[in-house]
Design a protein around this nucleic acid. Structure first.
Length: 593
DNA sequence: ATAGGGTTAG
């Protein structure tokens, strides 16, 4: 094969900037041309030619037709090579039907064709995609039996498998027993922790990587940035950014994407925009990160603007994911008309079939805007069987708009599908509380107790001097240090002096507990403890950044506003869904969350 | 010679 033989066909041009190109190197028709040339030259049946053709198929875009062609080549081959076989397993593992990889392998296994150290990573990858822990365990056992259990590729794939299946203890065990770790080993474990929401563990592991004298690469840095995004750790994220620039690792679009995501999720939207504007070539994922950043930081109009820019200026076709972001921007910003327009275009202009999540966005959009009847109508008329999440979204909207009637209806639907989810009962209780129906509040709480439903403990983290401190509400005052206890007491006193009246409507305390006990619970809400800690550990005027795992309660929200005023501090509080920027006594969310 | 790890939502 010569390059001249393909010179008339349009070969993919080298990308000027990004190494994460969206298009594969070759199309199927180019592969077929090459194959024709090889046949004419009488080389088509040689091993290198067959290997090369299959490899090209597996790298082609769009992959599926090329993959079928690879399977054809394989079936017609008189003597398929292990390379062909492994490449096909690999490609099948990366499709939307990864179990085909396992089936393909079983056929070889039955024919007593031995696997090699490239077979197992591909099979394990298929299991990772399928979250198939037991199949993965079997393959683990086979790898050990084949004597390939020590191979670094196999071990890395095993770590990846266990992380994908949320079996972090298994992953950690394989990691610990892997003594000759390479950078991929570290990256797999770090990203595994991040993907399971364990940011602190991921960051600790990154420090271990450095202590072990391993040089982090771009993917290590993506992992660190994701961890910072999860934890809301801006200072560490800035450090990582500086490190990336110092070592010239900011060329990849995935690094830029991770930076945008990190700054957005740390509430530093201006820096996210700077990174975005400094990126010359943008793809869908990068745009999505930016649009989502605008969405969660409350810039609804700009999110829609960026979405239009992406489509019109860059000619990028949106997918379901970016639609989730832009529609959630619309619902937080109350942009009902824009949201409806986009939802229509989703089908008419982009030929996408809306999935459940997108109906969820629309229910949220209508519900938040107070158009509860329309939201209910949409759920009833949608072509899919509405999932529990849609009803839950509607229930949340009923809380915001104090609608008992539709709220009760939504709750019934939820209970039929998934009883025992604590948040639903809390929401219903809050709806009753918001209209003063205290007997019903008490009833819900008794029901929760009877059903043995407990509340997920609130947890807040705050970063001070590059270290992350986390505070969990469950074990109240006796677990705090003397320093934290005293700080919390002082802060509570100052709040009272400034006229803060505890608002216990959203406290789900034991019914027999009196008002005093419920007020006491409020004091110990984790975001208050984190802020009290931040107030004493940072110099006056420093912005406090807190990340909470649950939605912020009405009392904490009011308290934060007051704290921002009396202490002259900005507080950026990220809750389960969104940001609250407290400044001079008010909040960016306009008290709607 | 070719075969591994990463980014966006919920």
């Amino acid at each position: 094969m010569t390059s001249a033989s393909l010179s008339s066909s349009p070969l993919p041009q080298p990308r000027p900037y990004s190494s994460d190109s969206l298009d594969g190197p070759t199309t199927l028709s180019e592969i077929k041309q090459l194959q024709a040339v090889l046949i004419k030259a009488g080389l088509a049946h040689t091993r290198p030619a067959q290997n090369r053709l299959v490899a090209l198929c597996s790298a082609a875009r769009p992959p599926d037709p090329a993959l079928d062609h690879a399977l054809l080549l394989f079936s017609r081959s008189r003597k398929p090579t292990p390379f062909m076989r492994n490449t096909i397993v690999q490609s099948l593992a990366n499709t939307s039907a990864p179990h085909r990889a396992l089936r393909f392998y079983s056929a070889a296994h039955r024919a007593a064709i031995p696997p090699n150290h490239h077979t197992f990573p591909a099979l394990l990858k298929a299991c990772s995609h399928l979250r198939a822990l037991s199949e993965g365990n079997q393959i683990h056992a086979q790898a050990l039996k084949s004597g390939l259990g020590c191979d670094i590729l196999v071990r890395n794939a095993l770590i990846h498998l266990y992380c994908s299946c949320a079996a972090l203890d298994h992953a950690q065990r394989v990691f610990d027993k892997t003594l000759e770790r390479d950078v991929v080993t570290w990256n797999t474990m770090i990203n595994g922790y991040v993907q399971n929401g364990l940011a602190c563990e991921a960051l600790d592991l990154f420090r271990d990587l450095q202590l072990a004298g391993v040089r982090p690469d771009e993917i290590s840095m993506v992992g660190v940035l994701s961890a910072c995004a999860v934890a809301g750790a801006l200072e560490l994220g800035k450090w990582a950014h500086a490190y990336i620039e110092k070592h010239q690792m900011d060329g990849r679009i995935s690094v830029k994407t991770a930076l945008i995501d990190m700054y957005s999720k740390c509430g530093f939207i201006d820096r996210a925009l700077e990174v975005f504007e400094s990126t010359p070539v943008r793809n869908l994922v990068l745009w999505t990160a930016m649009i989502n950043g605008l969405a969660i930081n409350g810039s609804g109009h700009r999110a829609v603007e960026f979405f239009d820019r992406m489509v019109n200026d860059d000619g990028i076709k949106p997918d379901g994911i970016v639609f989730v972001s832009v529609l959630s921007a619309c619902s937080h910003g109350g942009l009902v008309n824009e949201g409806t327009r986009l939802f229509d275009e989703l089908m008419t202009r982009y030929n996408l079939v809306p999935q459940m999540e997108l109906f969820g966005c629309m229910v949220d959009l209508l519900g938040r805007a107070g158009r509860l009847d329309e939201a209910l109508e949409l759920i009833r008329r949608m072509p899919l069987e509405p999932g529990v999440i849609l009803w839950r979204t509607l229930l949340g909207a009923c809380r915001a708009h104090r609608n008992v009637e539709i709220g009760e209806l939504a709750m019934k639907e939820i209970q039929r599908r998934e009883p025992g989810h604590h948040g639903d009962h809390v929401l219903l209780s809050n709806i009753y509380a918001s209209v003063g129906r205290w007997e019903d509040v008490a009833y819900v709480r008794r029901a929760m107790k009877r059903m043995g439903i407990s509340k997920e403990p609130g947890c807040s983290i705050i970063e001070v001097d590059g270290r992350i401190y986390s505070f969990v509400v469950e074990d109240a005052s006796h677990r705090y240090s003397e320093e934290v206890r005293a700080a919390l007491e002082r802060m509570t006193r100052r709040l009272r002096e400034a006229g803060h009246v505890p608002d216990t409507r959203e406290v789900v305390a034991r019914v027999e507990g009196g008002e005093e006990e419920r007020e006491e619970k409020l004091v110990h809400h984790s975001e208050k403890v984190a802020v009290a800690f931040g107030l004493i550990r940072t110099v006056p005027g420093t912005t406090l950044r807190v990340v909470k795992n649950l939605r912020v309660c009405v009392d904490c929200h009011a308290a934060m506003k007051l704290i921002s005023e009396i202490y002259g501090r900005e507080i950026v509080l990220r809750d389960r869904n969104r940001f609250h920027h407290f400044k001079s006594g008010s909040c960016s969310c306009g008290d709607h969350w």
